[in-house]
Design a binder for these strands. Structure first.
Length: 474
RNA sequence: GGCGAUAUCGUCUAGGGGUUAGGACAUGUGGUUCUCAACCACAGAACCGGGGUUCGAAUCCCCGUAUCGCUACCA
């Protein structure tokens, strides 16, 4: 049986890198084994959920290339895939639990319970719900319901031990005595997470639940629910969390945390996927750079490590550059265009642009890094770096050198890096200066900047007319 | 506080009863060179602590410590 896995974000915020990695692991697992990857939106927290976030999450998933086989947009046999459209199912399940004696109506007011809890905690005591409503007689409950008194449904946690075999952590056991009777249906008739997740995972025939470590403590409650519903318990794999450099939970103060921000900053989805895959998972060898296809071939749940991982932005940069260097210039050009980064007036041909891109690859960590570096090739409107101008163009001998070089370049044939280098060195020698002096001056005159790719390659691609014009402009 | 998970270079990790504990990022030094990158070479850098099991423990077990998570009518 091919596995069925799901990613079930709550649309209360953007897709953050932790969620993205969880989604990625699920996707990789499904693709590796020819299973199904389901996307489900857990929007039962109506207060905090928004449709904008739903859209943002879809966009980030698509950007990463994590396509789903069942879910919003694409549909599927187990829909709908928004929990707020499945409310009937949860209510029916809640009532069934009451009917079978696995749950009971609770008329306690949340505020009262909260007050009792905090009072107990202030006194240093642990506090668990005391089941007072479970002791009510059937007649009493019926009367309260008939009177329209609001009530929640609580699961009656049985005594015993609840255990499950986690694919990452091995066997994990909990004493039910430490689990309090939790609410499954709130008094506003909305389900809580524990109920909706189990109802949906059963309904959608999810075989493997791959999710964040933070759910380990919730799992026994859900296992209890599976048992009460006489449903098969899926396999669980709890993946460790991603932390900030201070090992605290990743948050805004750590900088960019959402996938969308990385997209906006010019990261490649290939690099993000590669980086995220290796954060908490290892295929075992020394290889670091993986294509999407290679990841699919190698991925397995067993390779997931047990401890939390720190998000290291420097390493992401490195991955990004590695992927840029492996990508064709034509592909990069396409990405630049769709990212809206190519709106400079194009004055050179497509082929020339691709040559420029190839030249710039090793010095571009992000897509946006190409833009300022491409400018001297695409436009005559140079941006001059003051320090570079001062350093390399201020010598009184420079104007004469520039003119001499310009005139020598008029007749160079062919217009290639090699011929250009020969010519420039000859001019420098004729004037008794070191080639470096003229090279640097020429670089600043032609690019406006103190740094650039090898000067002769730059000159070749900028073109004869422009080079001469820029050299003569004093 | 209770319950749970985790612990190898600064970071991501490989490995795992007997190894010079491997790789990558970052860092440093050198090479290349017209600059900055890229690239190449080299270097420094780790098995949380304590007990036990064992001929032998970083590896297995226990305890401690630290970190993270859960402890809601959030997910």
């Amino acid at each position: 049986m091919p596995p069925r896995v799901r990613f079930a974000p709550s649309p209360t915020g953007y897709l953050h890198v932790g969620g993205a990695r969880t989604a990625l692991f699920n996707w990789l697992y499904a693709r590796r084994h020819g299973g199904a990857f389901i996307l489900r939106i857990e929007d039962t927290d109506v207060e905090r959920s928004s449709t904008d976030m739903v859209t943002a999450i879809f966009n980030s998933m698509k950007w990463l290339g994590l396509d789903w086989d069942e879910g919003p947009d694409v549909g599927g046999p187990h829909g709908p895939y928004f929990q707020t459209e499945r409310l009937d199912k949860y209510r029916a399940a809640g009532f069934a639990l009451v009917a079978s004696g696995h749950a009971y109506r609770c008329f306690c007011k949340p505020e009262d319970l909260k007050a009792e809890r905090s009072a107990a905690e202030a006194a240093g005591r642990t506090w668990n719900y005391d089941r007072r409503c479970q002791r009510r007689s059937a007649a009493e409950v019926a009367a309260k319901v008939a009177a329209g008194e609001p009530s929640a449904i609580r699961f009656l946690v049985p005594p015993g031990i609840t255990a499950f075999d986690d694919l990452v952590h091995g066997r994990i056991e909990f004493d039910n005595a430490n689990i309090e009777d939790f609410v499954v249906i709130r008094s506003d008739d909305y389900p809580t997470y524990h109920l909706s997740v189990v109802v949906d995972d059963v309904d959608m025939q999810v075989s493997d639940v791959v999710r964040g470590d933070d759910h380990i403590s919730n799992t026994p409650k859900q296992v209890l629910l599976y048992h009460a519903m006489h449903a098969a318990v899926p396999r669980f794999a709890h993946v460790p969390l991603i932390m900030g450099p201070d090992k605290k939970r990743l948050s805004k103060r750590h900088g960019a945390t959402s996938v969308g921000e990385y997209e906006a900053q010019g990261y490649l989805p290939e690099a993000m996927v590669n980086f995220l895959a290796l954060l908490g998972w290892s295929p075992g060898g020394d290889q670091e750079i993986f294509s999407r296809e290679e990841l699919i071939q190698r991925f397995d749940l067993e390779g997931i490590s047990g401890g939390n991982a720190v998000f290291n932005p420097e390493k992401l940069d490195w991955f990004n550059q590695q992927h840029i260097m492996r990508m064709s210039a034509a592909e990069i050009l396409g990405r630049l265009r769709s990212a809206g980064l190519m709106n400079v007036g194009l004055e050179i041909g497509e082929l020339q642009i691709e040559k420029v891109i190839d030249l710039l690859k090793p010095r571009s960590k992000k897509l946006a890094d190409f833009v300022p570096q491409m400018r001297p090739f695409l436009s005559d409107d140079l941006v001059f770096d003051e320090a570079a101008v001062k350093k390399h163009l201020s010598d009184p001998a420079v104007p004469g050198l520039r003119k001499a070089l310009a005139s020598a370049l008029r007749t160079v044939e062919p217009w290639t890096a090699a011929a250009l280098e020969e010519t420039l060195r000859a001019v420098a020698a004729a004037h008794g200066v070191k080639a470096g002096v003229l090279i640097h001056a020429t670089r600043v005159a032609v690019t406006g900047q103190g740094n650039s790719p090898g000067l002769f390659e730059v000159l070749e691609l900028v073109g004869r007319d422009r080079v001469i014009r820029r050299l003569e402009l004093c």
